[in-house]
Design a protein around this nucleic acid. Structure first.
Lengths: 130, 130
DNA sequence: CCCTATATTGGACAGTGTCCATTGACGGAG
DNA sequence: CTCCGTCAATGGACACTGTCCAATATAGGG
């Protein structure tokens, strides 16, 4: 079990949330996770969801994305990659990591996040006019 | 006057906030702007500050940064550039735009934001232990 | 100097995240 | 299998950010 290997107790909230996130490629907000759990008959308080998501992310079992507009999102992919954010439907899609040439930085960089903002192919080109 | 050139009424809140932001290279959160204005004897409600900041950013008179952890920040620089974010002191520093090779995207990209996360030179290397 | 379109105001509200004391349960020891 | 210490979940309160709205004020053209 991944949780135990990471030195964490395999509690029900942790197992359920980890499994849910690892099920696909969706980028979950905490609230989405909570709503989905509720539909699966496992209602949890917001504090528990946030707590678990933070623990899983800190342990490296899931990825956290906090370089987008809006609330933090959590995903299955933990390897280095970048994100496309649709300004229309607010969905997040993983994209291949671009090779960034080094630039002068005012400190030590621990990670680099590239965010592409635009409109995804599923969304019309212009904002909703109606 | 920049405001009039942009087709906007030159109201006191707008002039004061625009001047304050253009004074330096700081990346202001809305709350920082409000507090600073209060110290200058121009207290404004939060809604007004947010309103003005949004208008100035939409008009292209200031830059908005919403690809960082935490609240949106506003800056004088409107040309294309990137940001270094210190995870310790949460300060934001502009860095030169890196040349990003094109990658396959799931939609049309309107802008690209690169965020370097680390510790700035002014901060000790490790998090505060005391 | 008026008048009107536009902006500000201030209050309420929703969403997100954090903190804390209390309760509960995981899982090792026996 | 049972017990129990330790760690995690709980749920309530709270702070912060951002948005919305009706009412008021003002910029600036005529």
């Amino acid at each position: 079990m991944a949780l135990r290997s990471a030195g964490m107790r395999a509690t029900l909230p942790r197992r359920a949330i980890l499994e849910m996130i690892q099920e696909g490629e969706h980028h979950w907000s905490a609230e989405e996770v909570r709503q989905n759990l509720t539909e699966r008959n496992l209602p949890l308080p917001r504090s528990s969801v946030n707590n678990v998501l933070g623990s899983l992310a800190s342990a490296g079992l899931i990825g956290r994305v906090d370089t987008l507009p809006g609330p933090a999102r959590f995903e299955a992919e933990t390897a280095q990659h970048d994100h496309f954010w649709c300004a229309r439907c607010r969905s997040v899609i993983n994209v291949q990591r671009a090779d960034v040439p080094p630039v002068a930085l005012p400190g030590s960089s621990e990670r680099v996040a590239i965010t592409y903002v635009g409109h995804c192919n599923g969304c019309p080109a212009s904002p909703p006019t109606a």
